[in-house]
């Protein structure tokens, strides 16, 4: 059950134009930096990207936007990216904005083998337009469909060769639910270890969900808003 590939280029080798990708991360935290760089290098186009945010101009998914590789973004918040804004306003880029919890839960549903979920988020708003509404116990809920993604690309802190993953701090975010949701899931990790080195009780994503794993290199781990207090 060895899932190890040589690196990002091999991991994304069969991602082709027009595919739907999930990309883990929240803002610039917990991003699959190596795979994004490989996708930029490969130049695949017309991608639909499901990711909570769209990166900034020169980091994260922003790098793919700059190369005009993205046809459609499905996100909850996209406000940090000038090139994104330009493409959106010029009609080059399609954007579907959905509530953050709905985004996470539609990933979760895919990973749990459920076709749809019911959530109150968006009831009475434009998010509800054209969607089925069901009333349970006197409250309205929207039916939201599980995502269907060709690939999920996630970043973990540690992983073993069998694909078991452990995330670190808030870099966990969307990564575990996306890891469960891809037809093929690629995990890049900071530390790749042998089976038995990770405590089974501490695994966040069991390896059954992960198809390819590699040790990433040169992580920049950029901080979007460095906020500090003074020592006194």
């Amino acid at each position: 059950m060895n899932k190890v590939v040589s690196g990002a280029d091999e991991a994304i080798r069969d991602i082709t134009d027009g595919m739907t990708l999930m990309l883990g991360g929240f803002g610039l935290c917990g991003l699959p930096e190596n795979c994004i760089a490989a996708l930029v290098k490969k130049g695949v186009k017309q991608l639909t990207c499901i990711s909570n945010n769209a990166g900034v101009d020169d980091f994260g998914i922003g790098l793919m936007l700059k190369q005009r590789q993205v046809k459609k973004m499905i996100s909850s918040y996209v406000g940090e990216n000038a090139e994104f804004e330009r493409q959106l306003l010029s009609g080059e880029l399609e954007v579907e904005l959905i509530p953050q919890g709905t985004l996470a839960t539609r990933c979760m549903a895919a990973g749990y083998g459920m076709p749809a979920i019911f959530t109150p988020a968006g009831i009475g708003t434009e998010v509800a337009e054209g969607k089925e509404v069901r009333n349970f116990n006197g409250k309205d809920y929207l039916m939201e469909m599980a995502f269907d993604a060709d690939f999920a690309i996630v970043k973990a802190w540690k992983g073993d060769t069998m694909g078991n993953l452990v995330y670190r701090s808030t870099a966990r975010n969307f990564n575990p639910v996306m890891a469960m949701a891809g037809k093929i899931t690629i995990a890049e990790v900071e530390e790749l270890v042998q089976p038995g080195e990770l405590d089974p009780d501490h695994i966040h994503t069991p390896g059954i969900y992960v198809h390819r794993i590699f040790k990433g290199v040169d992580y920049e781990k950029r901080i979007e808003h460095a906020t500090v207090r003074s020592k006194q």
Binding site: G27, A171, H225, T227
Partner: peptide, 20 residues
């Protein structure tokens, strides 16, 4: 609270993407 200067950890942020 926010970390002391020099102790920011890129893996520890809040929903506003600030280091915490």
């Amino acid at each position: 609270p926010f970390p002391f200067e020099g102790e920011e950890d890129p893996d520890i942020i809040n929903a506003g993407k600030q280091t915490i």
